[in-house]
């Protein structure tokens, strides 16, 4: 049953995938694999490991399409699968704790003009995003790149919506301080 999906084309493709349609799976893959890869990379720095997780995620889409209940959009469902696989992967690797506390780095107020100038420089912005914790990078990516709503981000990350907003708030604060230094 495909209900509540935001994108009718995604829902149609997923229904066909549930029936074993490889062409539909290819279309779904081409639409979502790259966003999923970027999301996984926001939590995991190794490109080849990210590629493996994308593969496992999309394989789960193929295997589980018929079980999709439509409680979220297809896109959110796929991102949730990716998030869970990333968490599992990191736990197995025991290299990073995804439960790490949010950074709180009090410091000087950033210079607004420096931030405004640096925010136009994609390379600088990426450099600063790369310095965020995995938790902060994930919410920033989902909210500002994937343009998901905060409730959708909360569902994918498995955290309360309020926590998403807190992470976004702190991430912006950290990014502004970082950009202020780079732009100054």
């Amino acid at each position: 049953m495909i209900e509540g999906a935001d994108d009718p084309r995604d829902a149609e493709l997923l229904a066909r995938v549930a029936g074993g349609d490889v062409a539909a799976m290819r279309a779904l893959y081409l639409a979502h694999a790259e966003p999923v890869r970027r999301f996984v990379r926001s939590r995991l720095r190794d490109e080849s490991e990210a590629a493996d997780i994308v593969h496992e995620t999309m394989l789960s889409v193929w295997r589980g399409a018929a079980g999709f209940q439509g409680r979220s959009s297809v896109r959110s469902w796929i991102f949730s699968l990716a998030r869970n696989k990333t968490v599992d992967h990191v736990r197995k690797q025991a290299r990073v704790s995804l439960g790490e506390p949010d950074e709180t780095t009090p410091g000087d107020d950033p210079n607004a003009d420096d931030v405004i100038a640096a925010a136009q420089d994609a390379r600088r912005v990426r450099e600063c995003v790369g310095k965020l914790s995995a938790n902060h990078r994930a919410v920033v990516h989902l909210a500002f790149f994937e343009e998901l709503s905060y409730p959708e981000v909360a569902a994918i990350e498995g955290i309360p919506e309020g926590t998403v907003k807190t992470r976004v708030f702190h991430a912006k604060k950290l990014l502004m301080r970082c950009l202020s230094r780079l732009g100054g």
Partner: peptide, 15 residues
């Protein structure tokens, strides 16, 4: 500055 940052994140990550 905060609004400028929010607007800059999407294009930056698209790269």
């Amino acid at each position: 500055a905060e609004i400028a940052l929010m607007r800059g994140l999407g294009p930056a990550l698209r790269g």
